[in-house]
């Protein structure tokens, strides 16, 4: 027999709703998602909550618990005081479908815009060889379960909805960093990372790293290294001078359709096939 816990859950749809109080039984060893399921089974049959694996691997049950972005299935009830009221709300950055379920399609749209992995076409299938040290950096980013808690907590879009078209968010800037670090990739996404995916808006306050349930060092290992690469491409006068002297032309990837950063004309001469002529490091 468990004890009763006080829950305050945001109920509503289309953005209209309110916090509703409940008292639900909770047993030792349970997580917040278990208690929400009991609430659903006993008192609020129409409560909408997205979930799948209950093991912290599918990234479905992202929500805000006492104001902190968390996975419901990985938040133990023992974290809270027995008499504490636990407030559960949907992710604030994304539109609500119903109750705790949000529409995260923003993220899939951003994912589609990123120029995909571009291997050197002159290397045949199965011919490319790479060492573990070459890929271990990007392997950290592959741990991402796409729970979108980092996207949710990022103040660039959380507090400024108007930035959503111009900013891809930490998850997808990390994806760009992953491709840029990949030894077999030949595309150069540094300029579009800044101009089309809004890397410059990130002010590296590390909230994405703080909330990541996979403990990926998003800021230190992806965003800052990507910022440094962008500095080399766009803001380093010595690199610029070197390019002029050696007449090196950067093979930037195509601008993202529908983005208007005003750099199209300046870049028109460098729109070449990816994989041809990029300075390989």
């Amino acid at each position: 027999m468990g004890n009763k816990v006080k829950l305050r859950v945001w109920r509503g749809d289309a953005g209209k709703g309110d916090l509703v109080d409940y008292e639900v039984e909770s047993n030792e060893g349970e997580v917040v998602l278990d208690v929400l399921h009991r609430l659903q089974a006993t008192q609020a049959g129409d409560l909408a909550v997205r979930w799948n694996c209950k093991a912290g691997k599918c990234g479905s049950c992202s929500m805000e618990i006492n104001g902190r972005p968390r996975l419901g299935c990985m938040t133990r009830m023992s974290l809270f005081e027995p008499d504490e009221t636990i407030t559960v709300t949907p992710m604030r950055t994304f539109p609500v479908i119903r109750d705790l379920v949000t529409d995260v399609s923003f993220n899939f749209e951003k994912a589609r815009q990123i120029p995909s992995f571009t291997p050197d076409p002159s290397i045949g299938l199965g011919e490319f060889r790479m060492q573990q040290v070459d890929v271990q950096r990007s392997q950290e980013f592959r741990k991402c379960i796409e729970c979108f808690l980092c996207q949710n907590v990022c103040h660039v879009i959380r507090d400024h909805e108007e930035n959503m078209p111009a900013y891809a968010g930490p998850r997808f800037l990390m994806r760009i960093a992953e491709l840029e670090m990949h030894p077999a990739d030949t595309a150069d996404r540094r300029e579009i990372a800044q101009d089309d995916f809004g890397l410059g808006m990130c002010n590296i306050t590390k909230c994405c790293t703080e909330v990541c349930p996979e403990n990926i060092h998003i800021t230190d290992n992806a965003l800052i290294p990507l910022k440094e690469r962008v500095v080399s491409r766009k803001y380093d006068p010595l690199v610029w001078l070197g390019d002029k002297i050696t007449r090196r032309v950067h093979q930037d990837t195509q601008k993202v359709p529908g983005k208007s950063s005003g750099h199209g004309a300046a870049r028109s001469d460098s729109r070449a096939k990816p994989g041809r002529g990029r300075h390989q490091r």
């Binding site: 289309a14 953005g15 407030t87 604030r92 479908i97």
Partner: peptide, 17 residues
């Protein structure tokens, strides 16, 4: 479909820490 918008929560934060 009805227009979707974010959950309107007036509080600056619901963090208790």
């Amino acid at each position: 479909a009805p227009a979707r918008s974010r959950a309107q929560i007036a509080a600056k934060t619901l963090r208790k820490d």
